[in-house]
Amino acid sequence: MIQANQVCKSFGNIQAVNQVDLTIRSGEVFGLIGSNGAGKSTFLRMLCGVYRPDSGKLTIDEEEVYENVTLKKRCFYISDDQYFLNNSTPEEMKNYYRMFYENFDQERFHKLMKGFDLNPQRKIRTFSKGMKKQVSVICGICTGVDYLFCDETFDGLDPVARQAVKSLFAEDVAERKLTPIIASHNLRELEDICDHVGLLHKGGILLSQDLEELKLGIHKMQCAFTTPKTATDFQGIEIVHIQQRGSLYTITAKGNEEEIRKHIQNMDPIFYEILPLTLEEIFINETEVAGYDIKKLIF
């Protein structure tokens, strides 16, 4: 289990991570989402012990990570801009990682390299961006660690490779309770693999919730009324966003679907329908409430 308690980190006068509280249970797939510069990568780097938090407490299985060698052996970090030794091949990188990760599964490594059609003897610098990502993922999975930190790992992978990587994660989560923590802003990508998402914005955590609950707690409706409605008519439901075009209202509201449905029915609509909200829409809504709306600044 990973626990963050009031974790802060700043670089000069830039507050990258600000009082983050977070709990990640073992064996669940955690998605870390956030706007650009929200502090996702900084948070991951603290998790794997690259940075030390300025204040607050960050523990994995109740131990602090920073300079903790035994704990670090159970973590693998796939950085956004991965580092490979100069002029190295995947085979050499594997041997390098074997020095730190005693349980490195070499057999699986070769099997996966073959499966992904990568030549372990070819210089990594001649690989494409996506192929480099694949090498990192394969190395990470084969180390047999308990925690895998992935920073924008699906970025640059083609759809087939993405499905394959997800299946790899799924296999290890099922088999040996791997805990992947995936930072991304490709929300569609996270939707089908994460149990739990944490939303970061400007260094702080906006929400951390079960994906299911998150989706069940917010709804989008389209409804039309014969008479114009004002805000007071909607009192009783928690409106996040409302848009009106003629007699057609598009409403985003929080709360229980049944209650919202009842409320709208009581207002005697000509028609109404409840539309599903994607994680992307939830993300936009939540950050908008927190004052993040670039479109407004540009147009």
């Binding site: 669940e28 797939v29 997800k166 299946s167 296999e171 989560v173 089908d192 693999i193």
Partner: peptide, 15 residues
């Protein structure tokens, strides 16, 4: 099995 279906559909085994 949970594992089999998770790998096949590329989704979370917990789901």
């Amino acid at each position: 099995s949970v594992r089999q279906l998770a790998v096949e559909l590329s989704i979370n085994p917990n789901t």
